[in-house]
Amino acid sequence: LYDHHTQNYYMSHQTMTDDQVTPTSVTYEMTHQLYQQLQHHYQTYVLKNDAHKMLVTFQMAPSEAIHFCFTYRHALRLVSPDTLFAQFTTELIQLQMIYMKGTL
């Protein structure tokens, strides 16, 4: 959903599924600032660190990983796993279709 007041997207009315509670390894390319913000909340492993970005693996539920892609869209990019990347792409296409059609 889109909140016009904050100009951000958010997920609403989620139901608990196995995928939401089973952590998986998710790799992101992200800014140093975002890593500093998130590192204390998740089990992480830094794969690569250069002057502009970091490659970091997180242990998190797949649904939360997709939510991150929307929430932190200006500061990270999903790298792997491929199955999660495909799921995120599907969610993004569905969002675009909603806006193109102008209906929910």
Rank of each mutant, 00 (worst) to 15 (best):
T83G: 05
A65P: 04
Y28S: 05
V21S: 11
Q33R: 13
L95A: 09
D50I: 10
Y9M: 09
M100T: 07
M16A: 11
N8A: 08
H74T: 11
T90Q: 13
Q14S: 11
H13G: 02
L76V: 08
T103A: 06
V56I: 06
Q96G: 05
A65W: 12
H40P: 04
A86V: 07
Y2L: 07
F68N: 00
L95P: 02
H74Y: 14
E29Y: 06
M97E: 11
V46A: 04
H67A: 10
H41K: 12
R73A: 14
M11E: 08
L95R: 12
P62C: 06
T89P: 00
L92Q: 04
A65V: 08
N8C: 08
V56Y: 01
V56E: 01
I98N: 11
L76D: 03
P62D: 06
D82T: 14
L95W: 04
M60E: 00
F85P: 00
Y99F: 15
A75L: 00
T71G: 01
T83Y: 02
H41N: 09
A75M: 04
K48E: 10
D3P: 10
L78N: 03
H32W: 10
H74V: 05
Q20E: 09
L34W: 07
L34G: 04
S12D: 05
Y10L: 08
C69T: 14
Y2K: 09
Q20Y: 06
D50E: 07
S63R: 06
F85M: 10
T27K: 13
V79N: 04
H32K: 14
Y10T: 03
L78H: 07
Q59K: 15
R77K: 14
S80W: 01
Q94E: 10
H67V: 07
P23H: 13
E91W: 13
T22P: 00
A51H: 05
L84Q: 00
C69S: 06
L84T: 01
T24N: 03
H74I: 04
D82I: 14
V79M: 13
P23C: 10
D18F: 13
T83E: 03
A51F: 01
Q20A: 12
M60C: 04
K53C: 07
H52D: 11
F88Q: 07
H4I: 12
Y99D: 06
D3T: 12
L47T: 05
P62Y: 08
T89C: 05
I98F: 13
S12K: 14
Q94I: 04
Q7S: 07
L95I: 08
D50Y: 11
F58M: 09
L47A: 09
T71Y: 05
P23M: 10
L104Y: 01
F70I: 05
K48G: 08
G102K: 00
Y72G: 01
L78F: 06
L1A: 11
Y42H: 02
Q43M: 08
T71F: 09
H52F: 15
Q37F: 10
V46N: 03
T24E: 09
A75G: 03
T71V: 13
M100N: 09
A75Y: 02
T90R: 14
A65E: 03
H67Q: 09
T57G: 00
